[in-house]
Write a protein that binds this DNA or RNA. Structure first.
Length: 560
RNA sequence: GCGCCCGUAGCUCAGUAGGAUAGAGCAACGGUUUCCUAAACCGUGGGUCAGGGGUUCGAGUCCCUUCGGGCGCACCA
């Protein structure tokens, strides 16, 4: 149920039949109707909806746009559409359509019926997987992971709302070169903390968190690893450390409001032979060759600048090889649509991955990658350097502790993933106007307060159909109803364009309309009919704000 | 050097799949409380949409180019 889309499609139908009628009467000559839009004009004076078809047809119909528009208006079947109030030709040839406000008075009933489901589309039967964060389990979660987590989780929420069957997945990089280095780092720290003078690996994980992990292991396990051979020692150390790191990652993300359906281990892809199998498949299709002892995948055939190694000269597969197997496996699991949320530093990987899918006979259009630009962290205007290796970073758990989950999530989701984000901790934690999350939450809390007041005053609220909404005649009230009507469309566009930040913007807009309204109109007042209608209006705003906040992953407090 | 992303008000950012007179918040200045929460509201000032060219009836939006910033260009992930 999408009120705006319904009206738009009705308008579209009426305009198309008007065009056909005009042609039948030889008032207009054209071959076919170009794809045109019915849109919501920015200017209120331009009507509730506007159509650009006349301008698009001008060339082929060899008439001036305004003439065509006038012909369309003349042939319009005004009886064919409810609520039609006025249609006029304007500007360069726009058809501006004004509707009777009556079309909005049914919206509250719909919202009150659907409640938390308002804005959602019927299940469409499509399965989509969103993989996000997938941080290396070798260190703390950083700001990039926080942004990816907020965006990925909200996107999953939006897609669910838009009718998809959504699964959230975390890919655990528990194999490969980084894990080797991690193991070496752990071993070095273990030996050092046991009093031995051994060098720390040049590219090792130098962060304090690794030291802490090893201290914990020493406390629990003692020095029993000292007498083992190095390979066994590393294996045991890394197994324990990974378990600890994963527990930390899971715990932190849960406290950020993120719950995964699947934690997928890279290691299992290697152990099950799927990585080797997919390389074999590519080899048989002629995409693999050997050079300097390594196995190369001809990614240049898919537009890459250079070919890519999949099996190193030492016989070990690269990350890319495992990722190919992983993505193949995703589609084997039956997902119609696979979405990855990656940091912008991985952008070079996208074309390769899609190329690999093409090579395997999979449709690369089934894969979408959201590349989010990196986060630059500030504290009171001073840049905070992020480095996983040196450990001088603010981790996600520290962010939640300092800024709070709601403010952090809202700040991340509010921004377009494409934007280079300057995140200032001081601003984000201010419970002030700098911080839009409170503005939205406050709208929700204020409405709750109105209902508490009503109850305390013995005012009965009658939700639903028996209330006459048409007493809401103020332009502010019409504007709110209209905004509320747009919510399902907003969800749909957000899902289609993979842009959850639109929901945050929408919530801000609606909260703004509410606050302004609140300061100019009284809900609880003597005119009982108006009071009931306004209570309904308030309830509707409350529901929509709560739904929007739920998508963003932010709480909707009843009191602030 | 090559590729991707970004450049919109003093600051942080929107800009609805190319539409009509480019918006919001903050900051600045001036107002609003006997009234459902002042974490709010109202008003004022503030723009060569980085520069240039092109496509189009119409460009912040698409193409080319210059400049500036970020990120990639490993037998790392």
């Amino acid at each position: 149920m999408n009120p705006i889309e319904e009206i738009k499609s009705a308008l579209r139908g009426v305009i198309i039949s008007s065009l056909h009628k005009a042609r039948a009467e030889q008032a207009l000559v054209f071959e076919e109707i170009p794809p045109f839009v019915i849109e919501v004009p920015r200017e209120k004076g331009h009507g509730d909806f506007a159509c650009n078809v006349a301008m698009l047809m001008a060339k082929s119909a060899r008439r001036k746009p305004r003439e065509i528009a006038a012909i369309i208006v003349d042939h319009l079947d005004r009886e064919g559409l409810d609520y039609l109030q006025q249609v006029e030709v304007a500007g360069a040839g726009f058809i501006n359509i004004f509707l009777h406000p009556q079309w909005l008075y049914n919206i509250p009933r719909l919202v009150l019926q659907m409640k938390e489901a308002y804005g959602s589309a019927p299940r469409n039967g499509k399965r989509v997987q969103v993989e996000f964060v997938s941080a290396n389990p070798t260190g703390n979660l950083h700001m990039g992971n926080a942004r990816g987590g907020a965006i990925g989780d909200s996107l999953a929420n939006v897609l669910h709302y838009a009718g998809y069957d959504v699964k959230r997945e975390f890919y655990i990089n528990d194999a490969g070169n980084q894990i080797e280095i991690f193991a070496e780092s752990l071993e070095a720290r273990y030996l050092q903390l046991s009093g031995q003078h051994v060098p720390f690996p040049e590219n090792g994980y130098a962060g304090q968190d690794v030291v802490d992990t090893v201290k914990g292991i020493l406390a629990r396990e003692g020095d029993r690893f000292l007498n083992m051979d190095s390979a066994q020692r590393r294996q045991l150390l890394v197994a324990m450390a990974l378990e600890e790191k994963l527990a930390y990652i899971r715990r932190t993300l849960e406290s950020f409001g993120i719950h995964y359906d699947v934690w997928y281990s890279e290691k299992t892809l290697h152990e099950s032979g799927q990585v080797n199998a997919v390389i074999e498949e590519l080899r048989q299709k002629g995409y693999i060759y050997e050079k300097e002892g390594a196995q190369w995948f001809k990614t240049t055939q898919f537009g890459d600048e250079k070919d890519e190694v999949v099996i190193r000269a030492n016989g070990l597969p690269t990350y890319f090889a495992a990722d190919i197997a992983y993505h193949k496996e995703k589609f084997q699991r039956g997902f119609d649509w696979v979405i990855d949320v990656w940091g912008a530093d991985h952008h070079g990987h996208v074309a390769r991955m899609k190329g690999a899918m093409t090579a395997l006979g999979l449709d690369p259009a089934g894969l979408d990658v959201i590349l989010m630009q990196l986060v630059r962290l500030y504290r009171g205007g001073q840049i905070v350097r992020m480095s996983k290796r040196t450990g001088t970073t603010v981790s996600l758990d520290e962010l939640i502790e300092e800024v709070g989950r709601d403010a952090a999530r809202f700040s991340f989701v509010m921004r377009n993933p494409d934007s280079h984000l300057d995140f200032d901790l001081e601003l984000a934690k201010q419970q002030s106007l700098e911080n839009p999350v409170y503005y939205v939450q406050y709208a929700h809390a204020r409405i709750c307060s109105i209902f508490r007041q009503a109850q305390a005053g013995g005012i009965q609220w009658h939700p639903g159909s028996e209330v006459d909404m048409s007493v809401l005649k103020a332009t502010e009230e019409i504007a709110i109803l209209r905004k509320v009507a747009e919510f399902p469309m907003e969800v749909e566009i957000s899902a289609k364009t993979l842009a959850p930040h639109r929901i945050a913007r929408y919530a801000l807009d609606l909260a703004g309309l509410f606050h302004s309204y609140y300061n100019h109109f009284r809900v609880l007042q003597d005119d009982l009919i108006l009071q009931q209608a306004r209570l309904n209006l308030m309830k509707v705003i409350q529901i929509v704000i709560a739904n929007a906040l739920a998508i963003i992953g932010v709480s909707a407090p009843e009191q602030m």
